[in-house]
Structure formats: C-alpha cells, structure tokens
Design a protein around this nucleic acid. Structure first.
Lengths: 347, 347
DNA sequence: TTGTACGCGTTATCAG
DNA sequence: CTGATAACGCGTACAA
C-alpha cells in the first residue's frame, strides 16, 4: 500500500525544491522549460493529483455544497439532488448529502457537522419537525457565520436567504381548475396541516380556484393531515372515512401518496375513477403514470428546482466579497399532465 | 460576516498560546482547572467547533465515505444510500455521493476527484457502460493506492475488494418457483443482456428453477434487453412483441419497470393478470405495491445492503495497518412478497 | 502548568 | 530561474 504522491515526494525524487515542483506543475513562467517538462512528465507518469484537503485548507474554500434534506427515498428529493449534482459538477463543485429523517435534532447536528469547514454553503429543505417546532436557529446561525444558504420547497419566509419554490398556489389552482373545467363541483382536497408551507399554499390555491368559479368552499371537504411524505395506516384510515362520509365528484391531493391511497379507497367503496370521482394530484413520482387508471397530476420539476438552487448558491459563493447582500426567491413552474383520472366529463 | 472561530483567535482573545487552548478544549490534564474552565466557557459561548478540513489534513483521514452510483432517481439506489448514510452516521462518517449517469468517463472522473484526498474509501456500483466496456482500471487504481473499496450490486468478480450482493440466482429461483408452484408452466423471462451481472445471474436462477421442476427451457421465452433501469419506447416495443408472439402463462422480470410495462401490454392484449398470465418481478420500488393488480415481487433489501457495504468499508478503514488483506463477499437475502399478480392458480 | 516547534500538502511571496 | 519561508487550522512531543 504505497502512499499517495505529494509535491514533497516528487521534489525529493527529482532533487529539486517543493516550490519548484509546485510552480512547474502550474506552468509558471518562472521555471525553465527544461525542468518544467521533466517534472510534469514525472508527475504524469505517477499520476500526481493535488490533495484536495490541503487545497481547501489553503484556499479556505472546499468547493463543496452541503445538501440537507429530510429524506432520500422520495422521488422529489431525488430529482432535486440530481439537479443540484448536475449544476454543481458543471461548476466544479462537490456535493455532500445529509439526511435529517425529518428529525429536528439530526438536522441541527448535520448542519453543525458540515458547517465545520466541510462545506462552503448549504442547500436546505427543512425537516417536518423543524417546521413544527418553529425553531430555525441552526439555519440563521449558519447564515450569520457567512455561510450562504439556499432553501427549497420546505422553507420559512422569515429566514434571510435565497429560496427556490414551486408556485404551490398557482399549481393547486391549475389542478383544481382542471377539475372544475371537466365539470366537477363537489371537489375535496386532501392536504397537510398548515405549518407545512406547501400544504398551506396549495390549500389556498384550491380555495381560490373554487372561488373563481363561484363554487362554495365547504370546510368538511378539506382534510388536513399531519403526514407529508408517507401515508401510514392511521393516515390511510382518515382518508377512508373522509371519502366515505362525503359526497364528492373529485379529489385534489397535495401529494402522490394521498392520491394513490384515495384511489384505492374509492375503488373499495365501489366508486369508479374517473366516472364517479376524478382525481388530480401534486406529484413527482412514477406512480401516477403507471397506475390504472393513470392519474392526472400537477407535476413539479424537481430537477429544475435543484439546478436553480445550486445556481443561486454558486452565485453567492463566487460573488465578490464586497457585493451587497441581496436575496432572491425563484419560482419553478408546475405543469398539468392530464391522464385517465380526469378523462370523464361530469355534467 | 464574521470569520469562523479558530484556536488562534481564542488564544489571542484570552491571551494564552494556541496549544493551551487546544489542550484545554481536549480536557488535557496538563492544563490547570482554572484556565481550562475559562477557555471552555469562552469556546462554548462563541460556539467553537474545530475545523474539519484542518483535522483531515492533520490526521490524513477525512472520515468521509465516497459513494459512486449510476443514478439516484431510482428506488434501489436511494435505499442503499439511506442504509449507507445510517451506518456512516452511527460511526461518525460523512458521505459524499457522486453520480455517473451510467457514463464511463464520468465515473472515472468522479473517482479521481474523490480520490484526491476527499475520501477515505469508496462504495461503488458500476455504470452500465463500464460493465459493457469491461474497463475497471479506475477502480483497481484506487485500490492500489490503498483506498478501500466496497462494490455492491453491479460488481465485477475479478476486482479484489469487498463485495455486497443480493443472491440474484437464489432470488430468481425463488420467484420462478413461486410461479411453478402456482401451476404456471409456460413461463417467460424478461431480463438484461449477459454483461450485466445481475441479469445474467437472474437468468441462471430462472433456468435452474425450471429445470428443477422438469420444465423445458425454451430459448424463445427468454427476452434479453439492453436496458437496465428504464424502459424506453424501443424497450417497450420489444416487450410488446415478445408478449404477443409467445403463448405464455407467466412472466418473470428482473426489474420493476419491465414488469409494469409487461402488465400494461398484457392488458392491452386482452390478457388478464393474474387469470391468464401471472407476474413476478424483482423489485425495490413502490410501484408493485400500488399497481392494480398489485405485483408479486422478489424484494431486494437495499437499505440492508447499504448498511452492510458501509460496515465492511468502515471495518477496512479502521483496521490496524498491519492486518492481513482479506476480502469478503456478503450476500443479502431477498424476500418473496406475494401479491395479486400470482393469486390465480393455473391448472 | 504553559508555550514552542513541527508537520499534514499546498501555494504565494520574497530572496537568492 | 530556483529555493526558502510563511500561512491555512489543528494536535502533540518536547522544552521551559
């Protein structure tokens, strides 16, 4: 197990000084053509690569972006990561990912860990629990220490940083309008509790869409759940009762799992999708496409979101020291994809 | 934007030497109770955390694991990552993820990048193209440089390193046997070309299962596709013709996408699943569970796989320098999950 | 009990 | 043209 090649080793081998080697490899004009060639040939032969860690220490830059997300087994985050990774790679940045598991303490821990020099900046989507606790000191502290932060998706308005969002309100509006256009009037929504920003905004879009069509908003047709990403048994049971107890001709859900669960229960209740009940869902996954019937969705573009977030962060990282602080919020558009679950026009 | 606190700054502030501060913070008995308390209080107040980069440089250890995978928008890899992350975190390691996009050059680039000091070892699943090209120098070079490497899933036998695999042959056997047990005899398989190890092994398991039941293996019932993770239009068309041209009562597929695509085409061909044709698929995703009918699967346990891979790597990283080199190959068991697609007993 | 010196691998500056 | 030196932030052996 030979040790990695360093400048020092090359220098010793070729009997020159370390700085000569360094300069030669960086094509400094100070070094004679002769020695330069010799050193470069040697370095190439033994595949010398400068040590990143040493460079980071010297430059006080790691060229590494830290990603803090609630979980990874989730199409949306996965796509965002892909987008971030692309953009980062294009700009010669690395990416470190940490998972909070929707746990506040772990999120704090992860941020502290990465803040200790491992990372030049953060891209963050907050844990469920963090939003609930309403405690964002770990984020603001990082910002105070001069760490650029970009938040996406699960954000908090008050934190002073760049943000990337999908236009949840508009997306929901578009989805619900599609239901209205296809004749639905008794439209339910399955959403999250209000402390989850995206749930709140989507609920708002739902209400606005109804109002714009002069349809009365009925409180009992709004189901707010604690869950965000999954749909456990308890959650499933709530949806079941909700669907059984209400007379509806459409369901709008703020995520794919809610939609799939609703579809199953409707089926079990003997209601046909889309003949009896239409479905539109916010979505990022593959499920909607492959379900029978396939589900119409308000599609988020996670990859674009990731790219944008990375772009904003890199901009901050590479801006001149003295530039004025300025925060932007970027919106990523959603797209309505019509599939079988809204094929049937209600009268 | 204040600078991060360092030992030097604390030392200056408290008018002691840097090493005194260092020792005090590490609870060295050399330092008087008095100054120790003073220094620790100060450090805590201003939230001092040692700089990781400096520590890495000093210790020649980064406590970081590099993951190199083909893609991330894929349930299986996502679960593996989760497992790795867990185990890494439990042992105080960080994780850097890079994506090869199934591209050979990018895989090489990523490895070189991370090998330059960013990482103590690698967990790798090879790119499609790499397997095809049969060129693994980037991996062996890393190993030669003393970087521990653990390969999983898409591995190459010849490379001397730890490996984590699922028992593809056994898994396939189990799946196909389930079809045989439920009365199917005209069982097709949709698999990958042989250069993909997992495809090859699963095909082998399929054949062995048939033979153990005395069922003749028919070459025309074996469809080998180039795709691995996705199923594009071309791939879909091939499956369609394959299903149309052959008289079968069951399909076994080596991944979920093939199964879903097959299910669609069978449907379109007027064949009912499971009444006319049963389906069993290798799988990691959520699709199988939610499809109607839901699909029986040979489930891989990606998270376990990730945990095991990380465990092996960390073992190598923390073993004493002089320990003898020894490589282990761990197998992760698969589980058969019976769902609706094999509910119908053929006669 | 505290401080000095050194090294991890690199680059930049300055001296020769 | 080449080399010595300092610095990035830390920990530790050794000296005071």
């Amino acid at each position: 197990m030979k040790r990695k090649l360093t400048l020092k080793l090359i220098a010793k081998e070729l009997d020159v000084s370390i700085s000569t080697v360094s300069k030669a490899l960086r094509d400094s004009a100070e070094i004679s053509e002769d020695t330069r060639q010799k050193i470069k040939a040697f370095a190439k032969l033994y595949n010398y690569k400068p040590n990143n860690i040493a460079l980071s220490l010297k430059n006080r830059k790691t060229r590494t972006i830290g990603i803090i997300i609630p979980q990874i087994v989730h199409h949306f985050f996965t796509k965002v990561i892909k987008g971030i990774e692309q953009m980062a790679r294009e700009h010669n940045y690395n990416v470190i990912i940490t998972l909070s598991n929707n746990d506040f303490d772990k999120e704090v821990l992860n941020m502290e860990l990465l803040a200790n020099g491992s990372t030049d900046g953060f891209i963050v989507s907050l844990a469920n629990e963090t939003l609930h606790k309403d405690d964002f000191r770990h984020v603001t502290e990082a910002i105070d220490q001069g760490m650029p932060v970009v938040m996406f998706d699960r954000i908090v308005d008050e934190i002073p940083c760049d943000k990337v969002l999908i236009d949840d309100r508009e997306g929901a509006k578009m989805g619900v309008r599609h239901l209205l256009k296809t004749g639905c009037r008794k439209i339910a929504i399955i959403t999250t509790k209000d402390y989850v920003t995206i749930g709140k905004l989507r609920t708002k879009g739902y209400i606005e869409a109804l109002e714009s069509y002069g349809v009365r908003v009925q409180k009992e047709l709004i189901l707010k759940l604690d869950n965000i990403d999954r749909c456990d048994d308890e959650c499933s049971a709530k949806i079941k009762h909700f669907l059984k107890d209400n007379d509806i001709d459409a369901v709008f859900t703020v995520n794919e799992m809610f939609a799939v669960t609703a579809a199953r229960h409707l089926n079990a209740l003997g209601k046909n999708v889309p003949t009896d009940v239409s479905i539109v869902s916010f979505s990022d996954g593959e499920l909607s496409k492959h379900l029978i019937p396939s589900l119409s969705t308000v599609s988020q573009h996670g990859e674009l979101m990731g790219r944008k977030a990375a772009e904003l962060l890199i901009n901050k990282l590479e801006r001149p020291e003295d530039e004025v602080e300025e925060y932007t919020t970027a919106y990523i558009d959603t797209t309505l994809i019509e599939r079988e679950s809204t094929k049937k026009i209600k009268n």
